[in-house]
Nucleic acid binder design. Sequence first.
DNA 1: GTAATTCCTCAACCTAACTTGAGGTCAAGG
DNA 2: CCTTGACCTCAAGTTAGGTTGAGGAATTAC
Lengths: 158, 158
Amino acid sequence: MPESAHAGPFANQVMSIGDLAERTGLAVSALRFYETKGLVTPARNRGGQRRYLRSDIRRLSFVQVAQQLGFSIDEIRKALATLPEGRTPTQKDWEKISRNFRMHLDERINRMTRLRDYLDGCIGCGCLSMKKCALVNPKDGLKKFGPGARSVMGDKLR
Amino acid sequence: MPESAHAGPFANQVMSIGDLAERTGLAVSALRFYETKGLVTPARNRGGQRRYLRSDIRRLSFVQVAQQLGFSIDEIRKALATLPEGRTPTQKDWEKISRNFRMHLDERINRMTRLRDYLDGCIGCGCLSMKKCALVNPKDGLKKFGPGARSVMGDKLR
DNA sequence: GTAATTCCTCAACCTAACTTGAGGTCAAGG
DNA sequence: CCTTGACCTCAAGTTAGGTTGAGGAATTAC
């Protein structure tokens, strides 16, 4: 008999990595990778195979959305860390995180819009060659990037 | 006498890599890297050292701005390829490129804004766990990313 | 009971965008 | 002339976010 049969036909609380991959649209390799990054922490069965909770579907959906919004895995991990440990997150828990992300998203949109407006100005003024141009040498919240791979829209959050 | 003295004190048309680095704020190593990527093609003096034109300052400023807007080096290279060969680009040439970039920027801003609005909806509906949610499984111009490093805001241009 | 799936770990590889370092050359000042 | 600083090339390293493959164990299906 299958390992989870004791849970009953409709209360199947755990999933294999393959099931979760199918439900989230993520690759199996990505799910394992996310575990090494601390985004999910599945249990293991006696054979050592990963067993995910249903609530992990939502967790990973959140990861996907956040990535589309331009957040790095590290930022996402920190956000998820604010979820309660021990119990399955409630709707309210998720709302709190989402609102937090919306704030950052607003910030990004504003920054891009400012950038666009500067660009409009520069088309006319021809200042692109001047080091003082707000676009090239940005003040106003726009920071210089460090070395290494760059995150979209420049600087990382916080 | 210095190698460029024949050009006169104020008509110093060429620069060393160090000068250009200082004027653009880019690292010397980055300028060399950009050359391998085809973003600039400096001449060489008899000793083999790079000699940049004044118009390269603007060219590299453009590279910096475009990167802040989230464009990849490859995209930027293609955009720069539309500049006239042989002659120094005019103001009009730059305006044309800038306008083109503004269009792409508008697109990105719109996409982020749509995403934000979806997120607002999801906070209320709690649909984050459903595969059909517009955020998790986006239609409406939002595409799935491929493997490898991701560009900011998801998919690359074009 | 056994064959076919699925899963496991670990190491290596991939792209983007650069930086760092080694070992050697060029140019400008005194 | 000769020293010092700026330059040169080329190879290897870095971070992010994963994928791919080898070699082996656990499940599931018949």
